[in-house]
């Protein structure tokens, strides 16, 4: 009887620890194989032939198709600059510059990977060709429930969301390696209670 209890509790602990650690290692945005710039994480080797099992499990579980190195690199953010999860009932400002690329796009998605659509049916996304910039080529995108001038990305609803910034045809995926790219900051601007 004691032996049986011993076995059962070992199996229970093994299942729980093994399952939780596997889940965390592929779900956490700052997971294995990632490069991190502030809240942004990218997996530059997800498209390679020598991809590690964690990265490959991650993209299979996500249902995404990775970009090849010659196509571009995508950065994902699930938190703001201070490390708090991105919430749809809060306001944010994405400000700064992106690394060099031919075009880039930034899109808000629900946590399961569907592009967010505002109540008016507008897409919650921008690309490098339709974003309004300052003279030094930096930009500010406001994520807000209220209409706002400039680059406004309407947020609605509740729950967490994530931002994906994709750089297409960017030299940072080339052989020189990914060296501390400068990414825009995601600044929290308060929440609607």
């Amino acid at each position: 009887m004691r032996i049986l209890a011993f076995f059962l509790s070992v199996i229970a602990i093994g299942l729980a620890l093994g399952g939780v650690s596997a889940h965390l290692s592929i779900r956490q945005s700052h997971g294995l194989g990632a490069i991190n710039v502030g809240p942004w994480s990218a997996w530059p080797f997800v498209g390679g032939a020598e991809v590690d099992p964690y990265t490959s499990a991650r993209s299979a579980a996500d249902g995404t198709l990775p970009l090849g190195a010659a196509e571009g690199l995508s950065f994902e953010a699930t938190t703001d600059q201070q490390g708090n999860p991105l919430q749809r009932n809060c306001r944010y400002e994405i400000s700064g510059k992106t690394p060099i690329s031919r075009i880039w796009t930034v899109t808000a998605y629900s946590t399961d990977g569907k592009a967010l659509v505002s109540q008016s049916g507008a897409l919650t996304a921008f690309h490098s060709g339709n974003v309004v910039r300052y003279a030094d080529s930096s930009f500010v995108i406001k994520l807000d429930d209220r209409p706002s001038s400039g680059n406004w990305l309407p947020l609605a609803g509740e729950g967490r969301f994530k931002l994906i910034l994709r750089l297409y045809d960017t030299p940072i995926t080339s052989n020189s390696g990914v060296i501390d790219p400068v990414m825009p900051r995601i600044l929290p601007k308060g929440c609607i209670s």
Binding site: V10, G14, A16, L17, G18, P53, A60, D62, G63
Partner: peptide, 27 residues
Amino acid sequence: CGITLAGIIHIVIILLIPSLGKRDAAK
């Protein structure tokens, strides 16, 4: 015993996800 088993289960899950996942876009 618990930690060894947890390690084995961790590795098995990571390796099985690509072949069992329903959301796998390539599949």
